[in-house]
Amino acid sequence: MRFAVLADIHGNALALEAVLRDMEGLGLSEAVNLGDCFSGPLDAGATATRLLERDFPTIRGNHDRYLIEHDPSEMAPSDKVAFDQLEQKHLDWIAALPSTMTIHETVFLCHGTPTSDQTYWLERVEQDGMVRSATLDEVEREADGLEADLILCAHTHIPRNIRLRDGRVVVNPGSVGCPAYDDDVPVYHHMQTGTPNASYAVIEGAPGDWRVMFRSVPYAWDEASALAAKRGREDWARALATGWFEG
């Protein structure tokens, strides 16, 4: 078994194209998509076109959900830009996506945790805004009762590979299109990878013998950054150009 894991594209069509080319170079056509496909000040329309063409097994992220649940007049700026670029067929596609999925019988897909698309799984945010790795006990608590050998999650944009005590593996592939961001839930904090590259993962093997390869793919991030700046999003422009939110 061999497949790619994509997540958190956030409307960055340039990064998605680079990842798809990298997959082709590896002779890899199968992939899964862990959601948050469109929201951002970039090119949600082109991203949607490519994703619908590829028809990868896909689950819905929290920002995908906002696009179909929130009134456009009340959307956050990144969601509103994406919403305005999408056609009704794209919104219908989002509405039909499940929040979780199991593939190959033992591979479980979620965006945040198995029960929440808005909760970090492999990281924790302290009350002072500092971000730390979740402890093994904290990670295992979220996996309690989950019958899967390989668990794929996203949402934090940070590539991680965690082995639980019982041998199950939890993998976050990182973000294809958004290497750094800020958020105010549960308190204000930054998530940042320190690289502008597009991130995804390649999974190979079988239950009990999973091999995880993280791919960090250079692309025309300067063009993506310039587009964000043109649309008045200096925060996104800086993050896309550097992989850092602050500084």
Results as ranks from 00 to 15, higher is better:
R2V: 06
L6N: 08
E17V: 10
A18W: 06
D22H: 04
E24G: 01
G25S: 07
G27A: 03
L28A: 01
V32W: 02
C37H: 05
D43H: 01
D43C: 00
A46L: 12
L52C: 01
E53I: 04
P57G: 03
I59N: 04
N62D: 12
R65T: 09
Y66I: 08
S73W: 01
E74T: 04
S78F: 10
F83S: 00
Q85K: 02
L86W: 04
D92N: 13
D92T: 07
W93H: 11
W93C: 10
A96Y: 01
A96W: 00
P98T: 09
T100V: 11
T106N: 08
T113N: 09
D117H: 06
L122C: 13
Q127S: 14
L136G: 10
D137A: 15
D137K: 14
E138R: 13
E138T: 12
A148L: 05
I151N: 03
R160M: 14
N161V: 13
R165N: 12
G167Y: 03
P173V: 13
S175H: 03
V176K: 09
C178N: 13
P179N: 11
A180T: 08
A180S: 10
D183K: 08
V185E: 15
V185S: 11
V185C: 03
V187Q: 06
V187F: 03
Y188Q: 13
Q192A: 15
Q192L: 05
T193A: 12
G194T: 12
T195Q: 10
P196L: 08
N197W: 12
I203W: 15
W210C: 07
F214S: 13
V217D: 08
V217W: 03
D222G: 03
E223A: 09
A228S: 08
A228D: 08
A229K: 15
G232W: 05
R233K: 05
D235P: 02
R238Y: 11
T242V: 06
